[in-house]
Each structure stands twice: as structure tokens, then as C-alpha cells.
């Protein structure tokens, strides 16, 4: 496997696995994270996978405690461990991705920009919804906000530039479009995405052991629901 290791400060190493966002690189990021997580190295603080790289945040003091008589320094010791494991990995597609259904109430008060997205792409609002529901979506990474998925696979026919004036407050659960990307806001935050709907499903669940509903590698199914279904769902989640 091709990779490059770089220091990320004096307590981290960045494993670069590619330069583009694509399925092949994504599979490598997934395989590498999964493999390294299993190593249970006690000097590792955490792994952070991104589009085409994985960071290892480590504790150099723990590395040196173990390898104190080494003439190498902690970063070199960490790199040696990592390289040894990376040589063993062959990216596999064996694990079938999980598919997560995300119910969305499109338009109305939840989708104040649906009309704009339709107009700027010269299609009807119904068509925007059909296309958004019909996409083949993959979560490439989680970042930006807790539980926020970077999603690939939205049909280009509904791509729309960000708003010129970002909104100061966007409700949690808002589904939006920014350029060729679609995303769901897990927490209330300012932002410039074009909002087309809202999900009643919580993406950020701080009380759960895994606080993010979605994880890198998941497939997503957006399912259109009515306002009544939205309210019923919210009631149930309470």
C-alpha cells in the first residue's frame, strides 16, 4: 500500500493515503483505521480518520517508557510500529457497509431554500426532492461538528452554491446543499448551506457510547416523510 508518514506536531503522526476523495482511497482509510484500532497500543491517545489520511495522536512519554533504551526518538519509534503494520494491510471490500435511513421532511418551514435550489437548477421542487432521495450516498468522514457527516454521491443536477449571507442560526437536523455536497447539521450552528429539509433523527447522541449516529463508511438512505410523521418521530425520540 502507498502511504506517507508526516509529523503532526510533537505528539502526532499523519498517515497520508491518497490525494483525492474517491472510493479507493476511502477503502484504504477504512482498512488502515480498522487495523490500527485493533492494535491496542497503550501509547495511542486516539485515531482520527479523514478523507485521505488517518492521524494518530500519541503520548511520547508512554512511548519512551516502553522503549527507553532505544536510540530512536518517540516519533521514529511510532513510525516504525506503524510502518510494520501498514505493510500487512491489503484494503478489502469484504465488510458490507451499514445503511442508515434518515427520514427527511422536505420543504416548507424546514426547507426555506428548496425553491431557490429548484429555480437555480431550472427544475421543479418535486424533482429536487426526487433527485436528493435518489442519490447513492456514502459517508466519507465525520468532522466539522460533532456527528457531522461529509457525504458524497449527491446528483449534480441539484448542486447549488452556498448562500451569500450565511444564516446565524440553523436548527439541528437541517438538511442542506453546499456546492456538490449534501449534509445534515447535528447541532444548532451558524452556516451557509442551502436548506431543503429537516430530519427528526438525532445525529449527535452525547449520552451514547458511540455519540455519532453515522460513521465513516456508512451508506445513507434519505426517506421523505410528511410533517405529521416528522412530529410523531420527534415525539417518539423524547
Amino acid at each position: 500500500m502507498d502511504y506517507h508518514l508526516y509529523p503532526l506536531g510533537d505528539q502526532g503522526v499523519l498517515i497520508e493515503l491518497g490525494e483525492d476523495i474517491n472510493l479507493k482511497v476511502h477503502e484504504r482509510v477504512k482498512s488502515v483505521s480498522a487495523h490500527l484500532e485493533k492494535m491496542n497500543w497503550d501509547w495511542v491517545i486516539e485515531y482520527v480518520p479523514a478523507f485521505a489520511s488517518v492521524a494518530i495522536h500519541y503520548d511520547p512519554m508512554k512511548v519512551m517508557e516502553k522503549e527507553g533504551d532505544s536510540s530512536l526518538y518517540a516519533y521514529e519509534i511510532v513510525c516504525a510500529y506503524v510502518e510494520k503494520e501498514l505493510e500487512k494491510i491489503t484494503p478489502s471490500h469484504s465488510e458490507a457497509p451499514r445503511t442508515v435511513e434518515i427520514p427527511v421532511c422536505y420543504g416548507g418551514e424546514f426547507g426555506p431554500d428548496l425553491a431557490y435550489v429548484a429555480e437555480s437548477n431550472d427544475i421543479s421542487e418535486e424533482k429536487v426532492i426526487d433527485l436528493h432521495v435518489g442519490g447513492d450516498y456514502l459517508v466519507y468522514m465525520i468532522g466539522f461538528a460533532p456527528g457531522f457527516p461529509y457525504i458524497g454521491g449527491m446528483p449534480e443536477e441539484i448542486a447549488t452554491p452556498r448562500r451569500k449571507e450565511p444564516r446565524l442560526q440553523i436548527s439541528a437536523g437541517s438538511v442542506g446543499i453546499a456546492g456538490k455536497q449534501t449534509g445534515v447539521y447535528p447541532i444548532e450552528t451558524p452556516g451557509g448551506w442551502q436548506l431543503i429539509g429537516q430530519t427528526p433523527k438525532a445525529l449527535f447522541r452525547p449520552e451514547n457510547e458511540i455519540p455519532s449516529l453515522l460513521q465513516a463508511g456508512d451508506k445513507i438512505n434519505f426517506k421523505p416523510i410528511t410533517r405529521e410523521e416528522f412530529d410523531a418521530y420527534k415525539e417518539e425520540e423524547k
Binding site: 503532526l8 490525494e19 479523514a50
Partner: peptide
């Protein structure tokens, strides 16, 4: 540039 991990002090 693709988003990649950062750390305290980047």
C-alpha cells in the same frame, strides 16, 4: 486541499 486532521497548536 482535502480536510485533514489538525492538533493543538497547528
Amino acid at each position: 486541499m482535502l480536510s485533514e486532521p489538525v492538533s493543538f497548536g497547528t
